[in-house]
Nucleic acid binder design. Structure first.
Length: 104
DNA sequence: GCTGTGACGCCAT
DNA sequence: AATGGCGCCACAG
C-alpha cells in the first residue's frame, strides 16, 4: 500500500465526530492537493472492506452529492447523529471543517 | 486563463 | 473472480 493511500485512510479515520473534511483538503493533507478525486476513489475502494466513516467526507461546498438520494439521507442522518447541523442537505463547512493542519 | 474541486472504476496480480 | 492501487483532466468562478 502506498504512503499516500495510507495517509488518506488515516486522515479520514482521524476525523473526530461532528467534523467534516473536503476532498481537496484531505488530498492536500495527504500530500497531494491534486489528487482530490483519487481520494474519493480510494475512499470507496477501502470502504468496501473497512469501516471507514466516509460519510464524514463531503465536497468543498459541504453538499452531500452522491449517486443516490437514499445514500444522501443515510449520510445526512449520520452526520446529524454525530452532531453536525445539516442544513438543506448541506453542512456548514465553515463551522465543521476539520482543521487537520492544526491538529497535526 | 488559472487554480480549485470532483463520489460508486478499471486493470493487474 | 475479487481486491488493491492509481497521484488526472475538465469545468466553473
Amino acid at each position: 500500500m502506498q504512503p499516500f493511500t495510507k495517509e488518506v485512510i488515516t486522515i479520514i479515520k482521524g476525523i473526530p465526530e461532528g467534523q467534516v473534511m473536503s476532498y481537496g483538503q484531505i488530498a492536500k493533507a495527504a500530500g497531494n492537493p491534486r489528487a482530490a478525486r483519487q481520494v474519493a476513489r480510494i475512499l470507496h475502494s477501502m470502504s468496501r472492506k473497512e469501516n471507514l466513516p466516509w460519510h464524514r467526507v463531503v465536497n468543498a461546498k459541504g453538499e452531500i452529492v452522491v449517486g443516490g438520494e437514499e445514500a444522501i439521507f443515510t449520510q445526512r442522518s449520520t452526520l446529524e447523529e454525530e452532531g453536525v447541523q445539516v442544513q438543506d442537505g448541506k453542512v456548514s463547512l465553515s463551522r465543521y471543517r476539520y482543521n487537520f493542519d492544526e491538529s497535526e
